[in-house]
Design a protein around this nucleic acid. Sequence first.
RNA 1: GGUCGGUUGCCCGAGUGGUUAGGGACCGGUCUGCAAAACCGGGGACAGCGGUUCGAAUCUGCUACCGACCUCCA
Length: 487
Amino acid sequence: MLQIYNTLSRQKEFFRPIHEGHVGLYVCGPTVYGDAHLGHARPAITFDVLYRYLMQLGYKVRYVRNITDVGHLEHDADEGEDKIAKKARLEQLEPMEVVQYYTNRYHRDMEALNVLPPSIEPHASGHIIEQINFVQKILDKGYAYVSEGSVYMDVEKYAKDFPYGKLSGRNLEQIKTETRELDGQAEKKHSYDFALWKKASPEHIMHWPSPWSEGFPGWHMECSTMGTKYLGEEFDIHGGGMDLMFPHHEAEIAQSCAALGHDTVHYWMHNNMITIAGKKMGKSYHNFITLEQFFKGEHELLTKPFSPMTIRFFILMAHYRSTVDFSSSALEAAEKGFARMQETYGRLMKIQPAETTSVEVAGLRERCQEAMDDDLNTPIVLQHLFDSAKAINTIADGKGTIAAKDLEELRSVWKTYAMDVLGLRLEETAGVDTNTEAYKKAIDLLLNLRLEAKQNKDWATSDKIRNELTSLGFAIKDTKDGFEWSL
RNA sequence: GGUCGGUUGCCCGAGUGGUUAGGGACCGGUCUGCAAAACCGGGGACAGCGGUUCGAAUCUGCUACCGACCUCCA
């Protein structure tokens, strides 16, 4: 039975959905004002694996992952200005043009990483009315106040009735002493009150009418609003990066409890950070590498380009709650490991069944499931797959045999766990058009000629064919009864 | 300063009171016309000092170092 680590209780809990057979899953998506970097790939892949595994377990999953295109206040010189709007003016574009541009690029990167699209991908800008209604509900309950056209959460009042800070392990007293005084906050009662609605300054270009002012929603509002709109007042799982725990998720809990009077989320899941030289990769650290840079190898820290599947494999090699440190050498190791897995899969598909099974293949499916059930322990799943890779290669080498039934099961487990659950593309996904078919046959023809030359012990011809192909970028491997090649 | 987490072999990274993690690198072997691949074997590890225990990398205390959050952040 699936166990997941719940940040609320700080321990692994058995997963029990609210509605039998159905799971509601909400994950904080990207703010589309820049290209996605390696850090963005972590939650995307982590929760993609969760989504895939829940479906594998037979659940009907509604997966909501938002696009944040309004509502992120900046706290530097451009106090109160919306991030999207700032970038838009900088580049002389319409705000929604920027949003569309980076959303398209995000989708492209996610598809390359084989991250499935969510069931619903709502935009914050498309839910302004719902957010206004949500703010009004909190006002009606008396947990917020209007000041100078903005609406703020009355954290002190809220904390009297609800445990503010329970997710991040803080209490109001701590928060009071910790919260930094920022400029231009005179209109708030307390520095730790956060904005539910923010009045737009005159030069601000992204704003909407509301009962309080021409303005825009506060930066935690969208998740409370869209989560409950699409998944209900109570839903199963909310995911996101650990760095969002405070204040974002804490504020989200407060907003929902204030408006609805009860908790919304049953299981909070947080993925850990990707670090670079031990430091969190992030925009403000100026140490991030975009996914596109990885795919193209265009970054000073990269020795070469890395394929999207290498990135995915690299991320799955570590447990999602551990930090994972990026380095080019670690990626190269992942690349080789993934290549090995791919080759093994290719051999698995070609193996011919025998009368009996001489290798150890039993129990693989159960071991993989056990690992996934243990809070999505993907490194252990990979370990089991690599263990079975040895058996597969032994058979492919002609040093072992496998019965038809066992072979079928082995293929099924690989397909289920490596491809469907972990989302690794082990087959060449290049379209099978006539061009590539013809070209493949041409290579086969050349290699068959080489085989003949070898049989005639014409090493000169044999080596010429192999060396020429190698220099063109092909990898030629001789096998027991022929050859294998790849580009 | 507060809260939380981490420190595992050459590298990346699982694990968890006694039994091989896995991948990469490296060394030796098998196979092979050569090469590659594959397979077999190998060395090496649990930050330091105490405690609990028959037994601790695993539980506990302290020390050291590192990081995350406390501000936008995946």
